[in-house]
Simulated scan of single mutants.
Amino acid sequence: MMFKDWLKNKTTQLFFVLWLHISLLNLFFVNKRGIVFLWQNNSELNTLLTHFVTALTATLFYIAIIKIRLRLAEKKLTLGNNVFVFGSAVMLALIGFFLF
């Protein structure tokens, strides 16, 4: 029971750190004249919802990875380096797809 409470707390902390990080990164940008703050754009409901969904998606992905690793550990299976290389390549392709 204690482990589940700790895991939930860690996951909740991860979500809030990600949400804060994404919101702060979107709060300002730097150009030749200096820092430009985007207070009005960053406080819109659509922007806040986008940050929330992004942090939630990353947290759910983290939870899924943890559950997969625990199930594999129960079955005494190990993943080779090729699986992680393939996963990294897929993530890189998805990032490239979403950027373009």
Rank of each mutant, 00 (worst) to 15 (best):
M1Q: 08
K4G: 00
W6Q: 12
W6V: 09
L7V: 14
L7A: 15
N9G: 08
N9C: 10
N9D: 09
N9K: 13
N9L: 13
K10H: 07
T11A: 03
T12V: 02
T12N: 03
Q13R: 10
L14Y: 15
F15R: 00
F15D: 00
F15I: 04
F16G: 08
L18R: 07
W19H: 07
L20N: 13
L20Y: 15
L20D: 14
H21K: 05
H21Q: 05
I22N: 04
L24R: 15
L25R: 12
L25D: 12
N26I: 03
N26F: 03
N26M: 07
F29L: 13
N31R: 15
N31F: 14
K32I: 11
K32S: 10
R33Q: 10
G34T: 13
I35L: 08
I35V: 13
V36E: 06
V36D: 03
V36Q: 07
F37E: 06
F37I: 08
L38F: 05
L38E: 08
L38D: 08
W39S: 11
W39H: 13
W39M: 14
N41A: 12
N41Q: 12
E44A: 11
E44W: 11
L45P: 04
L45A: 11
L45E: 07
N46A: 01
L48V: 04
T50W: 01
H51I: 00
F52Q: 02
F52A: 04
V53M: 09
V53I: 12
A55E: 01
L56G: 07
L56A: 12
A58M: 09
T59W: 06
L60C: 10
F61N: 07
F61L: 10
F61S: 09
Y62F: 10
Y62D: 04
Y62S: 06
I63Y: 09
A64S: 08
I65Y: 14
I66T: 15
I68T: 13
I68G: 12
R69A: 14
L70P: 02
L70W: 09
R71Q: 12
R71T: 06
L72Q: 15
L72P: 09
L72N: 15
A73M: 09
A73E: 11
A73V: 07
A73T: 08
E74G: 04
E74Q: 06
K75F: 07
K76D: 07
K76A: 05
L77K: 13
L77H: 10
T78S: 01
G80H: 10
N81Y: 11
N81D: 12
N82R: 11
N82Q: 13
N82L: 10
N82D: 11
V83E: 01
F84G: 09
F84N: 13
F84L: 13
V85S: 02
V85Y: 03
F86N: 03
F86G: 03
G87H: 00
G87Y: 01
S88E: 00
S88K: 01
A89G: 10
A89F: 07
L92D: 03
L92C: 05
A93C: 10
A93Y: 10
A93N: 08
L94W: 01
I95W: 02
I95P: 00
I95N: 00
G96E: 05
F97V: 03
F98W: 08
L99F: 05
L99P: 00
